[in-house]
Every structure is written in structure tokens, then in C-alpha cells.
Amino acid sequence: MQPDACSQQRSCEALKAPRFPILTWDEWQPGRSPRRVFKIDWLIPGESLVSILWKFACANALPGEVLMRLMCPDVDPLAGVIPLRSTLNLTELRRLLRLSENVLRTSLLDNLPRDRYHAAFRYCRQCAAHGYHSVLHQLAEEDRCAAHRQELRTRCPQCHRQSPFVINSSVIEAPFRCVWCRAHFCYGRLVVRSTTQAMRRQDRHAIRDRVLLRLGTDASGVSNG
């Protein structure tokens, strides 16, 4: 019996290479410079480095441990680093992500006293639904999202535990999700690879204005919609 056309088509599709092939550590070594998938249009003003790295890792199917080795070769990937300007090399980040220094500086917390920012990851559920986390969310003085006016949360809606505000291999591999139970922070399931600007223009402008007010920068290079 001859296989039907639909079966043949399904077999061919199953043999196709994935859209974002998983790269090995050797392929991602700095000297090899593989082609990387990333667009500035995926970012919103004031986007935190954690949020940027989630998009970068997902777009390139890049394991968290490999990304940590590329960014911080002298740091234990599981321990990670707090995303402060003093703990990360901006030159290396620019080379890796190919983003402007202004965008990267805005994505990191300044060298603030520990009581000025939250050690636990804080988020707005609506922002998370758009694949966005703002560096403003971590500031102690900010209680609500600038765009949606929702109270910022620290606890997982599923297990009620707090995820740390750090960059490590475990956090990178849980984009917009709880690092403990992997529940999504947003309402429903998030497609991180989407490049569609789902957030309303007025919300993006509200975030931009708040970033300018609090951080003294307009995050030049990031589209405002």
C-alpha cells in the first residue's frame, strides 16, 4: 500500500532542522562568532538585562550555562551575578548582544545601596504577558507598573515562592517564569519568540517617560512604537 500524501508530508516536516538549532559550547566560543538572531525592535524602553537575555537565549536556543560562560567566564553559572553595572563588563555585553552602550547601561541597576532595590524578582503580570520586564520594577521606590498601574509582585502565582533577581543559568532557562516551579508569571502561556509589538503605544510611551524621569535616559536606540 502506497503511503498517502499527507503522511509523506508529515514525514518530511519531521526531518526538517529546527528553526533555532541548539548550539554547543564550542560553536559559541568567542573566536567562532556564529550568526546570532536578535533585533533591537524586540525591546521596549527600560527593558532589564534579564528580560533582554531571555529573548536572546530563546531566539538562539542558547543554554543558560553557555550564555553565562560567554558573559561571565569567571563566575559559577549556577551562582550567577546581580545585574548591576559594577558586576558586568559592558564591552563584552555589547560584543555578545550587539546593542548600544546606552541600551545596556539602562538595562542594569546602578550601584545602589541594597535597600534601594529588591533582591527578589518583581514583575507586572501584564508586562510579562508581553515578554517585558523593566529595570524600574526592581527599584524600591516603584510600587506599580508605569504602563498598567498594577501592583508589582514578587511571589509566584502558583507556588508563592520568590525568584531571585540574579542572572544565572537557572534563571536564563526560565523565561518569564518562576525559577522554582516554572509557572508563568503572566496570564496564560507566553510565546517569548514572538517579535510582534503587542504592547500598546501609549503603554510604551508611559514606560519611556518613567524611565526618563527615574533614570535620566531615554534608552536611545529602542523603538517607542
Rank of each mutant, 00 (worst) to 15 (best):
P77A: 11
I82L: 06
R98D: 00
L108D: 03
P113F: 02
E92L: 13
S86H: 05
S107K: 06
A79G: 11
V103R: 01
V81I: 15
L109S: 05
S107R: 13
P83C: 14
T87S: 09
L96H: 09
D74E: 14
N111K: 07
R85N: 04
S107L: 02
G80M: 06
D74F: 13
T87D: 06
S86M: 07
L112M: 04
L112F: 06
V81S: 04
L99F: 03
L78S: 15
P73I: 00
L99G: 05
L104S: 08
L109G: 01
I82H: 10
N89M: 10
V75S: 04
R95N: 09
L108Y: 12
L93K: 03
L88C: 13
P73G: 11
G80Y: 12
G80T: 07
E101H: 02
P83R: 10
L97G: 01
V81Q: 07
N102H: 00
E92S: 15
L112C: 09
V81N: 03
L84P: 10
R95M: 15
P113M: 12
E101R: 04
L93G: 00
L99K: 00
L104P: 07
D76S: 10
S100A: 12
E101Q: 08
S100Y: 01
L88E: 12
L112V: 06
L84G: 08
L90K: 14
S86W: 05
D76N: 12
E101S: 10
R95K: 05
D76M: 06
L84F: 13
R95Y: 12
T91Y: 01
L108S: 03
N89F: 11
P83I: 13
P83D: 12
C72T: 15
L88Q: 13
L108K: 04
I82Y: 11
R98A: 07
L97K: 01
P73N: 03
V75H: 04
D76L: 06
T91E: 00
N111G: 03
T87C: 09
V75I: 15
D76G: 07
L88M: 15
R85F: 05
L109T: 01
L97S: 02
P77E: 05
N89H: 12
L88P: 13
R95Q: 05
L96N: 12
N89A: 04
I82D: 09
G80Q: 11
S100R: 02
P83F: 12
R105P: 01
S86Q: 10
V103E: 01
A79Y: 09
P73A: 08
E101V: 00
E92G: 12
V103K: 04
L97H: 00
V75E: 03
L109C: 04
S100M: 04
A79R: 14
S86L: 10
L104R: 06
R85K: 06
T91K: 02
T106F: 10
I82T: 10
D76I: 08
R85P: 03
L109R: 09
R85C: 08
S100W: 01
L96K: 04
L99I: 01
N111E: 14
V81G: 01
L90E: 05
T106P: 05
I82W: 05
L109I: 01
E101T: 02
E101N: 09
R98E: 01
R85Y: 07
T87M: 06
L78H: 12
T91M: 02
L84K: 13
R98K: 04
G80V: 11
D110T: 12
D110L: 10
L97D: 00
P83E: 08
